[in-house]
């Protein structure tokens, strides 16, 4: 998670370089946004003659709109809300999330998602490994541990958010489900942006990257997605036999190059998260390339020098982007 003061031993020159990079970032951040930062009980200026809607993080006391959290004021039409920075994940329907199974219960799994409660992935709202659409029987319930057990990392979609705040998940496609052969990283959810794509395949390295909206990021070996809809019924037997072959393969080794790539990407994400920069695929890939071009070993990526280099690079990148 974010270290406000970089807890790394910086040499004098590194300190100066780092401070300069941070100063440049500060000057680059749009000036209009800088005074939109509010903290608890700051009053938010609103035009009381126009109707306005008070959103998350606000409350009205004596006709004055007050912030209840620290963050940035956002205005969308009449809606006024405070976007929090460091806070737990706030789910929206359709979000792609990565989580860890913590309990196998009667009809579903409980999943840790960095939310105020555990998410629930019901057996009925996920495709079975055989890919057939049917009613879930008690036999399926007994076989739940064959699908996920405790401590498995899973990927799913937010199905709905109930009124009492509980969260339901679904995994109705082959692209969701159990994640294996990789690393799970946790960053603050405000560093992840919702976008059209959360599944990424970095072809040059053969790595899958899943950036969950809840700030859990999966870096793992690339797996081909098999879509059961495409497979004909006759091929069913074949598929089952191939899947048994796959389970045999699972014990096989992941090549060391892939492992190194996973670690390199993992460390790139750790550095970005330490510095509090937004985590997107472009930035991650750029950071990985930067470490390669500077010949920095994987274990040196978490050192002070690379942090400073990444900060300088980010300042440069944002400046270039702004010019465009």
């Amino acid at each position: 998670m974010v270290m406000r003061k970089l807890q790394l031993p910086l040499s004098q020159t590194q300190k100066v370089r780092f401070e300069r990079a941070i100063e440049r970032l500060q000057s680059l951040s749009s000036t209009a946004n800088s005074d939109a930062s509010v903290i608890v009980t700051d009053s938010i200026p609103v035009n009381h003659e126009d109707a306005f809607l008070k959103g998350h993080g606000t409350s009205e006391v004596d006709g004055e709109l007050l912030a209840t959290v620290c963050g940035v004021v956002e205005r969308v039409d009449k809606l006024v809300y405070v976007r929090t920075l460091r806070a737990r994940y706030k789910p929206e329907v359709g979000d792609i999330v990565v989580g860890r199974v913590i309990e196998v219960s009667q009809k579903g799994w409980r999943v840790e998602l960095n939310f105020t409660q555990d998410g629930v992935l019901m057996l009925s709202s996920m495709t079975l490994p055989d890919g057939i659409q049917r009613r879930r029987t008690s036999v399926d319930e007994l076989n739940m541990r064959n699908i996920f057990v405790e401590d498995d990392v899973v990927c799913a979609e937010v199905r709905n958010l109930q009124h009492d705040g509980s969260l339901q998940l679904q995994a109705r496609s082959q692209k969701y489900g159990k994640l294996e052969k990789g690393q799970l990283l946790k960053v603050d959810p405000y560093l992840v942006k919702r976008s059209k794509h959360h599944f990424h395949y970095i072809e040059s390295l053969g790595i899958d990257l899943i950036i969950g909206c809840n700030g859990f990021i999966w870096v793992g070996e690339h797996v081909e997605v098999r879509d059961p809809m495409v497979i004909d019924d006759q091929k069913d037997d074949e598929m089952i036999s191939s899947s048994t072959k796959n389970t045999g393969k699972e014990q096989s080794h992941i090549p060391p190059e892939t492992r190194q790539s996973i670690c390199r990407i993992g460390n790139a994400i750790r550095v970005l998260s330490n510095l509090g920069f937004t985590v997107t695929v472009e930035v991650i890939v750029e950071t990985v390339n930067l470490s390669n071009s500077k010949n920095i070993d994987i274990h040196d990526m978490l050192g002070s020098e690379f942090h400073v280099v990444v900060a300088e690079n980010e300042a440069e990148r944002r400046r270039a982007k702004r010019k465009k």
Binding site: L25, L28, S29, L85, Y190, F277
Partner: peptide, 19 residues
């Protein structure tokens, strides 16, 4: 306390960037 919090919030926001 307010000074410290505001400084911290601003710091987080500009590091995150609007991009």
């Amino acid at each position: 306390i307010r000074e410290v919090l505001l400084e911290n919030t601003k710091q987080l926001e500009y590091r995150r960037g609007s991009a």
